[in-house]
Design a protein around this nucleic acid. Structure first.
Length: 291
DNA sequence: GGATCACCTTC
DNA sequence: AAGGTGATC
């Protein structure tokens, strides 16, 4: 369709290198971005269709649907993290004494932790158990196109948790959700019946919010930590998945440590911004750590 | 408590 | 085997 996207606008608060740009949007924090070409992505966040592109001078530009400019700009400032002092975050990480972490940061110097809508983040990571990123994206895309509110140009909003109460488990299974369908259906019912306000968790401390999330079926420590890190911007969350177990084994000598033990080590070793460190380690291992 | 296994489906 | 969780022993 002609003219369905606004003119490109400069996003002034982030000037990433190309690797950091791609890894931030499409490195497993979010499952809604599809590449248009080597330098740009299109996706839908809440009810905002968005495009982001990277230019040679490290400038990032964005575009939305005409009429949504104001809302889109506000959303992006949360999503990409305006006024966050990443320099200060890096400074607290132990890269001075941790040469592997230093190497990971140098590979993705402008990597950011996204600030996604909480409900979308929870749904995404409820889909993530023993799935690869491409598969999670496919599941999310299917449920979006079949059950999400239609937006411009064949794009759809992700179903809300209220929407999900009306979607049968079998319909979710038909979206390739597998055994995750039951968890998601039950979580939706629980949210509705107990009148749970997911956004209220953001004002709670990390441990309390984590306990609350772990009450949902299908949410254990790893899914809770991912939701807290990418959906509530709680940077002390340190998700431990198979990649992080591998990292800790190979680069930190933690042989045969349990996920719980590794999570404890991570919080002690990396500190208040352990989740940011985790994302560097994760990104590096996936791209450069050989099998 | 810690270890083991089923759970859907696909690459 | 793939970005886990929950039930069972």
């Amino acid at each position: 369709m002609i003219d369905s996207w606004s003119p490109w606008q400069i996003y002034t608060d982030w000037q990433p290198d190309l690797n950091s740009f791609k890894e931030t949007l499409d490195g497993g924090q979010a499952f809604c971005w599809n590449s248009i070409d080597e330098y740009s992505y299109q996706g839908v966040v809440l009810n905002f269709p968005l495009r982001l592109r990277w230019l040679e001078n490290k400038q990032v530009e964005w575009s939305c649907i005409p009429g949504q400019n104001e809302g889109a700009e506000k959303l992006l400032s949360t999503y990409l993290g305006t006024n966050k002092d990443y320099r200060a975050y890096y400074d607290t990480l132990p890269w001075r004494s941790d040469s592997h972490l230093k190497r990971c940061i140098e590979a993705y110097p402008d990597l950011r932790i996204l600030g996604q809508p909480d409900g979308e983040t929870l749904l995404g990571f409820l889909c993530s158990a023993t799935k690869q990123i491409v598969q999670i994206k496919e599941m999310i895309q299917l449920v979006r196109s079949r059950f999400g509110r239609p937006l411009e140009d064949q794009m759809n909003q992700l179903p809300t948790w209220a929407d999900l109460t009306t979607i049968e488990e079998s319909a979710l299974r038909a979206c390739k959700f597998g055994f995750r369908a039951a968890n998601i259906h039950k979580a939706a019912i629980k949210i509705a019946e107990e009148d749970i306000d997911l956004s209220a968790l953001s004002s709670q401390p990390y441990e309390e919010a984590k306990d609350a999330l772990c009450q949902f079926p299908g949410v254990g420590e790893k899914v809770a930590d991912c939701t807290l890190l990418f959906g509530y911007h709680k940077l002390e969350a340190f998700p431990v998945d198979t990649w992080i177990l591998k990292v800790m084994n190979r680069h930190y000598g933690l042989d045969d440590w349990s996920p719980k033990q590794v999570a404890h080590f991570g919080r002690i070793h990396f500190g208040s911004y352990a989740g940011l460190a985790q994302q560097f380690l994760f990104a590096w291992e996936r791209s450069f750590g050989s099998k």
